[in-house]
Amino acid sequence: MVENEEQPKKRTRREFLQQLGIVGIGSALGGSAILAALNYDKSKTDGQRVRVLTAQNELHEINKDDLHKVLPSKHGKLTYLQQQGRDGLEGKRFVMVIDLSKCQNARKCMAACQNAHHLRPEQHHINVLKMEETENTPPYYMPKPCQHCDNPPCVAVCPVDATFKRQDGIVLIDNERCIGCRFCIAACPYSARIFNWAEPLNAQVEKDVEYNVELNVPQKKGTISKCLFSADQVRLGKLPYCVSACPNGVYYFGDENEDTVTNGTTKETVRFKKLLEDNGGYTLMPELGTKPRVYYLPPKGKTVPFNEQDREEASEHLHHS
């Protein structure tokens, strides 16, 4: 009987302690919730408003507390420059027109391009070729950048999405993603792509430079590079490096949506469709279905003759066995 009397007593003490604990925790939680709510309100009312420019070039006003710095992450996620490089410019469809009747093989385009993209002398994003179609047709010079195809074979075969087509028509490469399989080189019918077989030219100097997809600098060993339509310049509203460097008025660059292209030498802006219509514009190897964004005007009415010294090299491709 004694035991029976003692048991309820003990239970009560335990229960009391339990209840005390619950009340204690409860009030602590409640208190912190109120405190947090107060703080939240405070930040809401005290917060400064700031203006930010979005990637779409629109001005927005937001609370300063909602600002989060975008940190470059090395694991999986893309840096700001990589994401910007993939997104491209909304509402644009870039095109290039190359007037073969003007090209005199000055090669200022090649030099400007190699300089901008830190390439070795044998690496060409743009290459001025000496062409001859048949024995009886005249030879001519043909600058050949990447054709930025609308149906790009290189993008189709890339196993890791390292090369991609942007909304503004430009085909770019992310050399932080590229595995160096060179399937894109095999797939490109225009031989537009090059590979960094060795350490790039400025590897030492550019060790700590943040990688810019739109310039493909710093170049990286074991990855692909190619013509980028100077996406970095285009973002700033400027003409590509090769286009501005040409002394002979060979290049036009512009936006298909606006139907305007600007000549890099004369800075004259003309109607894109009209330019093609008036001069018999065409694309390289249309039969492959790649749909290039680079158009050519035939070498008609050349004022400067083809250099005799280049004739042999031009016909090499013709007779090659």
Binding site: V160, R177, I179, G180, G222
Partner: peptide, 14 residues
Amino acid sequence: DMGRPDRLLNVFIH
């Protein structure tokens, strides 16, 4: 044959 064998896993990730 890969230029960047260190990125082999990209084939599975991406």
